[in-house]
Amino acid sequence: MAEIITDKLCHVYSKDTPFEKTAIRDISLTIPQGQLAALIGHTGSGKSTFIQHLNALLQPTTGRVLLDGEDINRDKYARRDVKWKVGLVFQYPEYQLFEETVYRDIAFGPSNMKLSKDEIDERVREAAAFTGVDEALFERSPLELSGGQKRRIAIAGVIAMRPEVLILDEPTAGLDPAGRTQILDNIFRYREKSGATVLIVSHSMDDVARFAERIIVFDDGGIAMDGTPDEVFSRSQKLVEIGLNVPKAAELALALRRRNIPLPESVFTHEQLLDALLKAREGKAC
């Protein structure tokens, strides 16, 4: 079980100073166990602030965060323990690597959990397998590896804690297309095997359209839209108003609709667009 509920969450940075800034306001969300949700929104919309509340790195100014019905900020120990249950992978996580060897870096999280040596070893190997880190690399220095490999090691470092909720802030930023697909596939494999809830912050609408069960759109510190990809992308007009782009296929469909080609609103993957276009052509032929 790992259900996250946020209750009227607000966060104000530098409260009572001239630099005061409300980052998120009144966020009430329920993310059920096992869901694969995507968070989208442009820079400064509050996504990063929001996800840092979910493992108690930031404390809400007002409001609560509940994990399985319990307030994660109830005391110091709860605030620490929630970090094992909710794993957070930051943007460009390769900048957090510091150990002399890949193995020890992946083991950093589990050893902070004060596990036995065997348990740590098992978890490191398991996490490395999930993220496609070859065991031959274990004794190398993480700093001399390629960008994609570093990223995978950093994600393995979080997965090694076996989190019930895995949150990733733009896990594919700055990778080549092959690297992007691999990283996403690795994350999905972890979710499948462990039943973990997964939250991904992403800017790539095409990725989001492909994998997410639910899309939560942030705008100006609040939630602008929340629903299945069908529901969210069918309101592409609104997405554009917020200043976000829509998946390439949805963009094309929108442009075609403007030219009076009758296409349904719920087109957002290449396959759907192809089907809709074929149907539209048939309609004309009749």
């Binding site: 970090k83 094992w84 957090q96 902070n112 979080v158």
Partner: peptide, 16 residues
């Protein structure tokens, strides 16, 4: 700001 980020990332891995 970089130090802040790295600290958060290590805290997320349970560093104390």
């Amino acid at each position: 700001s970089e130090t802040d980020k790295i600290m958060s990332a290590q805290k997320a891995r349970g560093a104390d």
